[in-house]
């Protein structure tokens, strides 16, 4: 047996891989579910916070800035651990799935709020004035004139940030979520063979590589031109 054969036998063992493929596929489904939930709730919450901030109510804005800063400073894994191991002491026992979802959604919310807010403030004052001078209300101006311009500007940074945070679903493995890494790790310890881990790694690439390449395209496509 050559060295290469031994390597392939260990890391790409066909028998082990066939056995644990369903587990890994199941893990992919969980990862996708988790990712979709995080993206939807995180972006939505971030947009809502940015819109509230545009109302310009001082104490409210301070609160929003504090929340955003908090979830930008804390490592996502610390938030997950805090919610999963800490909340039971307060009477709530969220599952690992829910803990991971909430934590990463909060992190995405914080980053999204910053990006949406920067987009809104980047729309020149003249746009507000022109719209208001024709009788559009504050809300109409925000929705019809300012947001469409702001969102275009936010697409590229938002895409990159969303990918980076969504990759964090792998952290769920620390709190026993059966996503890809969790499935791969337990399969590895059951089979005493690293092949499931290689499959897991491949699964991440299958999921995220197209998104990263698409993000590159988006970055050039939506570069702001006036």
């Amino acid at each position: 047996m050559t060295g290469w054969d031994r390597f392939a036998e260990t890391f790409f063992n066909a028998k082990v891989m066939a056995k644990y493929l369903p587990d890994i596929l199941y893990g992919m489904v969980v990862t996708i579910e988790l990712a979709v939930l995080i993206i939807l709730s995180g972006l939505f919450a971030g947009l809502v916070l940015a819109l509230i901030r545009s109302l310009g109510v001082r104490p409210l804005n301070w609160l929003i800035i504090f929340i955003v800063d908090l979830f930008r400073s804390l490592p996502p894994l610390v938030i997950i651990v805090l919610i999963y191991f800490g909340l039971p002491a307060a009477g709530a026992s969220p599952s690992g799935f829910v803990s991971t979802w909430i934590s990463l959604a909060l992190v995405l919310m914080a980053f999204a709020e910053e990006i949406f807010w920067a987009g809104i403030t980047s729309v020149p004052r003249g746009q507000w004035e022109a719209a208001r001078s024709t009788g559009l209300s504050f809300v109409q101006t925000l929705l019809e004139v300012v947001l469409p311009q702001a969102l275009r500007l936010t697409i590229a940074p938002l895409t990159n940030r969303t990918i980076a945070i969504t990759k964090g679903t792998a952290l769920g493995t620390v709190v026993a979520v059966t996503e890809i890494l969790g499935q791969a790790s337990s399969a590895m310890s059951n089979s005493y063979n690293p092949s499931p881990l290689m499959m897991g790694a491949t699964a991440y690439l299958v999921l995220f590589l197209p998104v990263v390449v698409a993000a590159r395209w988006i970055e050039t496509r939506f570069a702001w031109k006036r």
């Binding site: 990759k167 679903t169 792998a170 952290l171 493995t173 890494l181 790694a201 991440y204 690439l205 995220f208």
Partner: peptide, 8 residues
Amino acid sequence: FRAFPPLV
């Protein structure tokens, strides 16, 4: 490496 979660 941008597509690969660092924990993995």
